[in-house]
Design a protein around this nucleic acid. Structure first.
Length: 435
RNA sequence: GGAGAGCUGGCCGAGUGGUCGAAGGCGCUUGAUUCGAAAUCAAGAGUGCCCGCAAGGGUACCAAGGGUUCGAAUCCCUUGCUCUCCUCCA
């Protein structure tokens, strides 16, 4: 979230920055400044009252507990106590309101993010490779996968409903191979520490990365059966970003340790509320999918360069797989809620005759760090500062599998496995129909 | 699931209603000493918020939340977590 004090002191700037996201975003600021002001004045009065209470209480300790002086002062303090309680309630109320407003305000787009209102205004930054020349009928991954017997959509639906898929044989193997391939490159070559986190997370973690409170409907909520009072609600992480970023929630990192870089494979769960009817066919938009994530905790001054670096790390995967793709930068109007600047990698899918997002690499400034209280100290004794967080998919595995099928298809319906992946596939070079 | 013990500052650990933000030790920082180091001695170190240009001042924080009280790390309640033993399980 944004800093209330910064918003109050730079109201016009913040308003202008948020306006770049489109109409509406800036309007959310209206009450923040006034709430922040009344919060400060309440704290002022409250602290003064408490100071007096502390002072008098200390002197009371030395008095004869039955003396008239003691009794009189005690009664006076009783009234001060009540007054304090009233102010405390008011303050709690104001702070709750302020917090609620702030949690719903999106991040300010960075000045380098291009202007624009929708995905049509996104800017192509670079293109890698070119569209493969495919002989014969171009098929999409659904047709290919079903014919090869590696994608079983029907049984996915039977087990779990729409947007769930069963991978089998070389399909399942490919999914596993991609996981290991990506993790190996990021941990061995790019210097990321491999993490294996829980995927059921507390609401506090989801709040830290900003899925909550605003995007609760996009997640699966898990309740423990029975339990009564102690019942706990957990959320299925929609991305490893949530557990991995929150690894350092409420911590102060040593400046020398930055950048801290983690990579993690997790299954990801999205309820996809509000996307009914979109991408209903195939693997593109599932309730459960696999992804390898990259997360970096960095200093503010290195953030822009670090963002480029992380994006490049994700691009390497597509390059090693020989998959034609392009990198685009999102315009201000298309940025995610928490992001200041985002590069998307879009892979070419011949079956759809379109480029589709396969990775989204975002720089969040201190937006997540403020929510999750992730700080660093430049040197011993220095004041703690908020870190900057950056993350991106490196990559979405299901969509990578789709791209391999569609870009690697041959006229006879078989699929060529990218050379780099062959060792991970147990030496298999080509996926051919089962039996 | 059952029984018990506990949760204090970076760590260990005192503390049982008033001067406790908290003894002591370890660790850390800075000085002194030393050719340098070790040892020793001295001083200093928490985090948030509010006021202040600053120096500095105020306030809150002893797992979390509530309560009792003029006053709570200390008493009461609720929740969470940790540990030990049993049970169960992968």
């Amino acid at each position: 979230m944004l800093d209330a004090r910064y918003v109050t002191d730079h109201l016009d700037d913040v308003r202008a920055a948020l306006a770049r996201r489109g109409p509406g975003a800036a309007a959310l600021l209206d009450d923040v400044a006034s709430l922040a002001v009344s919060r400060r004045s309440l704290i002022g009065s409250l602290d003064a009252l408490r100071a007096r209470k502390n002072e008098v209480s200390a002197s009371l300790a030395k008095l004869d507990k039955k003396g008239a002086e003691f009794l009189e002062a005690r009664d006076a303090m009783k009234r001060v106590g009540e007054e304090t309680r009233v102010l405390e309630v008011q303050l709690a109320e104001v702070e709750a309101q302020l917090e609620d407003k702030l949690l719903h305000i999106p991040n300010m787009p960075h000045e380098s993010a291009p202007d624009g209102t929708s995905e049509h205004d996104n800017r192509v930054v670079r293109v890698w490779g070119e569209k493969p020349v495919l002989e014969g009928t171009v098929r999409d991954h659904v047709a290919l996968g079903e014919a090869l017997g590696i994608l079983d959509f029907e049984r996915g639906v039977k087990l779990s409903g729409t947007r769930f898929t069963v991978l089998r044989g070389h399909g399942a193997r490919l999914e596993r191979a991609l996981m290991a391939f990506m993790l190996d490159i990021h941990s061995n070559e790019h210097g990321y520490e491999e993490i294996w986190p829980p995927v059921l997370v507390k609401d506090t973690a989801a709040r830290g990365t900003s899925q909550l409170p605003k995007f609760a409907k996009d997640m699966f909520k898990v309740e423990r059966f029975e339990e009564g009072e102690g019942a706990r609600t957990l959320y299925l992480a929609p991305t490893a970003e949530v557990p991995v970023t929150n690894l350092h929630a409420d911590e102060i990192l040593e400046g020398a340790a930055l950048p801290v870089a983690y990579t993690a494979y997790t299954a990801c769960f999205r309820s996809e509320a509000g996307s009914h009817g979109r991408d209903t066919r195939g693997l593109i938009r599932q309730h459960q999918f696999d992804k390898v994530e990259l997360v970096r905790f960095v200093t503010p001054e290195s953030a822009l360069a670090e963002h480029e670096r992380l994006t490049a790390h994700a691009e390497v995967i597509l390059q090693r797989l020989g998959l034609h793709h392009r990198t685009i930068e999102l315009c201000a109007g298309d940025l995610g809620f928490a992001s200041r600047k985002t590069f998307d990698l879009e892979v070419w899918l011949p079956g759809q005759d379109a480029y589709r997002e396969i990775s989204s690499c975002s720089w969040f400034g201190d937006f997540q760090a403020r929510r999750a209280k992730i700080r660093f100290r430049r040197e011993a004794g220095a004041k703690p500062e908020l870190v900057h967080t950056i993350n991106g998919s490196g990559l979405a595995i299901g969509r990578t599998l789709v791209a391999i099928l569609e870009q690697g298809q041959r006229p006879d319906g078989t699929v060529t496995i990218p050379e780099a992946l062959v060792p991970y596939m147990g030496g298999v070079h080509t996926i051919t129909p089962r039996r």
